[in-house]
Every structure is written in C-alpha cells, then in structure tokens.
Amino acid sequence: MTSFISWWTSAVVFGTVIMYGALGEILTEKSGHLNLGVPGMVFLGAFAGFASAFLLEQKTTNPVVLLLIPLICAFAAGALGGLIYNFFTVTLKANQNVTGLALTYLGVGIGSFGGQYVVKAAGYETFARASATSSIYCKSIAKLGGLTDPFSKMFLSYGFLIYLAIIVAVIMFIILKKTRVGLNLRSIGESPATADAAGINVTKYKYLATIIGGGISGLGGLTYVLIYCQGGWMTANSIEALGWLAVALVIFSTWKPLNAIWGSYLFALLYWFYTNANVFHMEFNVVQADLVQMLPYLVTILVLIFISLRKKKENQPPASLGLNYFREDR
C-alpha cells in the first residue's frame, strides 16, 4: 500500500505538469492553432519560474513575493511563447507546424542556456536549488495539519498548483461549453470563415487563446521545477519530453479539459510504472523500462484509432486545426 501511495503521489505531481501543458494546448487548439511549441513553452515557464525564484531568494524572504513573482514570471514566459507563435502564424501567416517546432527549439534553447547561466553564475557546477520558494510551493494541508492517514497523503499532500490545475480545467470546461466566449472560440477552431462572417474578431480570439494557452503551459514548467524537482534545476533535464507528453495528452483527452484531468494522472502512472512495478511484484531491466515508458504514447495511439473508428464528430480535432485563416483567400 505504501509503495502504491508513493507511486500515486509522485504521479499526481508529474501528471499536473503534463496537465498544465495539455490544458494550455487545448485552449490554443480550440482557436485552430496547432502549436507544437508546447515543450518550448513549458521549458520557458520552468526557466522563468526557477530563475526568478532563485534570484529573489538572495534578496528577500517575503513569502508573498516568493510565491507571486515566480508564478507571474512562468505564466508570462509561456505567454510570450504564445505571442511569438501568434505573430508568426496570424500576422505573418507562417506555417503553423514549422513555427511550432521552431518555438520548441527556441524555448528549449533559451531555457537551457539561461538555466545554465544562472546555475554557473551562482557558483555551482550542474545543479542549483531554489529551496525557500520550493518549500512555499510545496506547503500542503496534510503537512500543515500533520495528517498522515492514507487519504490525506493521497489527496491533501500537494502544493496549491496541483489543485489550481484542476480548477483551471473546470473553468475552461465551463467557458468552452457554457459561455458566449467559448462558443465563439470553438467556432473559430471549427470554421474561421463562419466565425468571421458572423462578426467575430478572429484575430483577437486567436491571439488571446494562444497567449493564455501559452501561459497555462508555462505553469506546467513552474510545477515541474518548484514542486516535482523541489526547486532544483539540473542543467540536463527532461522537460522537453514532458512537453511532448502534453501534446499526446491533448489527443488522448479528445480536446476536452475534463478528460485531461484524469488523463494526465493516468499518463503519469503509466510513465512511472517501470519504477513502481514492485506494486505488482514485477521488475524491469533497463531495456524493458524504456519500453514500458512508452505506454502513454501507446495509449494515445489506441485512443486515436478508437476515435477514428467511432467517427463521432464531437471527438474529432477542431476542423480547421493547423490551417491559417485569410479572409480574402479564395
């Protein structure tokens, strides 16, 4: 039981990283933007969160500042990625796939370079830690109340970012499903010409959805650095792989925010199955572990096959996903 709880708790934190990435991408894709720059934006968010926290800690111990500034920086960094993407695909009408991939490389490049710079400037070799900020981000109800029963461990032992992700998902669901703004946004992803003819400002919606989506993805990076890595920044890390998991999760959740919640935990459980296989009295060697880590992708492919076979229109990607919109194009 204890080994399952530790598998579960680490999966929830890890899953939240993917969930933020996926939620941001769902919002982006609902506007018809296939932004393959998710790994880049997660990386940017991670770097901005870590760097701001690490540098602030040397100046102040005020918990409010240490809480808010990294949060804002991570969101802003991800949003900046979204802004770049918008500028290229909406304003300059560049190809979406190319722009997205370029953004991934840009984000990973800036993030690794900047991170390395911060670590080295502080006099460390390959690893530095923003421990004060991390401890604030890791504060949980279970810890504050000294609760140790299994239920508290499984559900109350996390920092606020983990719950915020679920709240964001629910809010996104409500906005997309129940409000005028959501209807407008979905119509743009389905058929921008229709939305345009209906008098909706397509450019504005595309910009806003992609920028906010980028910001949400950036929070995934913040979660990774300050909670999952407990404030530690390694110059060699695996944030990019997480970004691709987020892209897979968008497909897995069939573009529905609520599916992303449980989907992200499932992904994380599957991803870390190989180190927790003892729960099922199994053990894997290195090669097998690599194969087992493919499970989330395998599941995504199965979901893809399943939804293609069912041909239910509501489960398909937004119809104009990946296509730029020109009003006067014929």
């Binding site: 005028r180 209807l183 407008n184 979905r186 119509s187 389905e190 058929s191 010409a193 229709t194 939305a195 003819a197 209906a198 008098g199 909706i200 229109k313 509501e314 398909q316 119809a319």
Partner: peptide, 24 residues
C-alpha cells in the same frame, strides 16, 4: 448574406449557429 458555401459550424446545433457572433 447567405453564402453559396454555407457558413455554418458542423458540430454546433442549429441554435448555436444562430447565436454565434451576436453582439453582446
């Protein structure tokens, strides 16, 4: 204007298509 190629969102219901883009 009713365009030759319909400007409708396929996965929306009729009423959703009608209210789409109405001035708040």
């Amino acid at each position: 204007m009713v365009h030759q190629h319909f400007k409708l969102v396929d996965i929306f219901t009729a009423v959703e298509n009608v209210v789409l883009g109405l001035d708040p």
